[in-house]
Amino acid sequence: MDAFIFYFFGGLAAVSALAVILLRQPVRALLSLIVTMISLSVLYLSLGAPFVAMVNLIVYAGAVLVLFLFAIMLQGIGAREIDLGKRFHPAFIPGVILTISFFDFGFLKLIRRFPELHFQDVAGSARQVGKTLFTQYLLPFELVSILLILAILAAVALAKREDSA
């Protein structure tokens, strides 16, 4: 089971990472990026690090959403209203309902059959991460603050828009 998860989601992560670079349309590339992030989170989960998995999702998905916005802005799509009836494929809403049902009733039930896949308060839990971060790895934790300041300085130095004249 572990091997299956590793190879499947690892492969998915690799393929979607490639897709990010190779796809031509920015929005599709960003969607592949989300798939990459989700696969990585699953891999983290399978390694027994639920905290990192969730944080990964939150941060990266959030970051990707921001990138989404920029992509759309840059594309400068002549925003035009599309008729509500024409926006979605007819099969879209039934498809979503079916997928969610499958996931809730089918997939999750399948997973509950395998107790070894349950993760309760193991080393990668939020409590453990917090404890280690403030005791054993205190110094690196503080050093990251310098990295963050650097990032801000980079934004100021390189990305800040200057008024002309």
Binding site: L143, L147, L150, A151, L158
Partner: peptide, 9 residues
Amino acid sequence: EIITLSFYI
């Protein structure tokens, strides 16, 4: 990483 990042900038 800190050092390299500064150099990128």
